[in-house]
Amino acid sequence: MPVFHTKTIEAILDPVAQQVSQLVILHEEAQDGNAMPDLSNPVMAVSAAVQNLVKVGKDTANSTDDKILKQEMPPAFTGVEESSNKLAEAAMELKRDPYSSPARKKLIDGARGILSGTSDLLLCFDQSEVRKIVRVAKGVLEYLAVSEVVECLEDLVTFVKNLSPGMANMANKVTSRSKELTHTAHANGLINHTENLKRTTPVLVSSMKIFVTVLKKGGAGRDEAQQNRNYIIGCMSHDVNEIIRILQLTSADDDELS
């Protein structure tokens, strides 16, 4: 059985995957000795649905500025279209010979191909959505580095004003994403690092305030205050980098977080 990366993809494809598995078992146990009915109509319905998906997919790919999505779409289209053609061939062959074993095998291969091709297509779009979240996280990462140049209270206020909405936006997106993942370890990793960031953001602001105050009072204890602030920035940067890394994992990367 295939492993689906997100709950949305799983909800759409898993019931069909189970049905295809049952058909495979029937075929492999040689319990499919009865005459196959005319499958022309259901195969045509699959073909129409595939053509619609390809059309919608091409429209979306044409309108996006995500270059990776544009590159990854065509092979996914080809996979699902080839499987649809295979189904049509199987239906024709079964119409001629309702007992044909090679045609039954072709039917199963076609159904499996439709599943994996549709899964690949959905994964392409899903990864495009992931890249949008990664961009937000990278923005936060870059902005965290700005904290090292804040040396007065006015700049600190500006820094906090800019950091807070960015951090909240990222946390919301990452939390939503964690709820979508079927891989528990990946989901928990995202939640844990997001919680770390929520906890350490006020600590960072405090450490920056101490640093600014130390500078204002003449600089005694500057090194310690700076080291403390930099340590917190390091921890937060680590959490954001881990979020970026985990976001980009797929279900195939099962052992990445073990």
Binding site: V20, L23, P42, A45, A49, L53, L122
Partner: peptide, 29 residues
């Protein structure tokens, strides 16, 4: 959203096909 709807339509059509093929042999759950 449109992609998801299109994928749902494929899933439904494939399910109907597999059932049609399966019913001929043995009822699928």
């Amino acid at each position: 959203e449109q992609i998801l709807e299109a994928a749902k339509a494929i899933a439904a059509a494939t399910s109907a096909l597999v059932k049609a093929a399966g019913y001929a042999q043995r009822e699928l759950v």
